[in-house]
């Protein structure tokens, strides 16, 4: 337990030696641009973000933490996974920071280093989607959700049964989908890009 002032835990106080000084450089490279160094902490990103009220750290804070080198705190946090890639921050940023690309870069870095929040549903959905497309070339909602609920909580699927049945009734569920012809090529290409 960290030290406390009244009941507030004092987190995020680190000595310089504990920070990862290369973190910003890594992320800038992965996120297609050096613009993060120019962040003026104006908060336009956080105010326009529809998800920021639900985040532990707002986008503005995340950028500051990346620049300062709080690698572990950023990568293990759920916040970055709440980014729905709506790009409003990217459009509103006066310094041209591709904030959505920064969030993508952080997600990938967390996955690659296996330090993403493993029990959290959003990375589980991303992985389920990735695997579904990798195996068939297209995303099938039934296959995708099966994979997703197997990875998370199979019982939580129950609350969606009503919607599922209605979709079935209105012919909006593709049970058998048309297959790709050159699926083997597609798989080969993906196998190569993962090496």
């Amino acid at each position: 337990m960290s030290s406390t002032i009244s009941n507030m835990p004092v987190l995020n106080i680190k000595r310089e030696a504990e920070l990862d000084k290369n973190f910003a450089k890594t992320i800038a490279k992965l996120a297609h641009g050096e613009q993060i160094y120019g962040c003026i902490q104006c908060g336009n990103c956080s105010s326009t973000c529809p998800l920021s009220p639900y985040m532990d750290y707002t986008p503005r804070k995340i950028i500051a933490m990346v620049k300062a080198g709080f690698r572990e705190e950023v990568l293990t946090n759920k916040t970055i996974w709440l980014c729905a890639s709506c790009y409003s921050c990217t459009v509103e940023c006066p310094k041209g920071i591709k904030i959505t690309d920064v969030m993508y870069a952080l997600k990938r870095e967390a996955i690659q280093n296996k330090i993403y929040p493993k029990r959290f549903t959003i990375p589980a959905m991303s992985k389920a989607f990735y695997d579904t497309v990798k195996s068939t070339g297209r995303s099938n909602e039934v296959a995708l959700l099966m994979r997703y609920y197997m990875r998370t909580n199979i019982f939580s699927a129950l609350s969606y049964v009503g919607v599922g049945l209605k979709l079935l009734k209105t012919g909006r569920l593709a049970i058998i989908e048309k297959q790709m012809k050159r699926k083997q090529d597609f798989k080969k290409m993906l196998k190569d890009s993962e090496n």
Binding site: L30, Y130, M189
Partner: peptide, 26 residues
Amino acid sequence: LNDWNCCGATNYMAINEQSAMSVTSR
């Protein structure tokens, strides 16, 4: 378009960017 594949959507970009862009560029 004949024999199209998934665009990769947002989820692909979150796992592997190079795969995502390859999938889309096909």
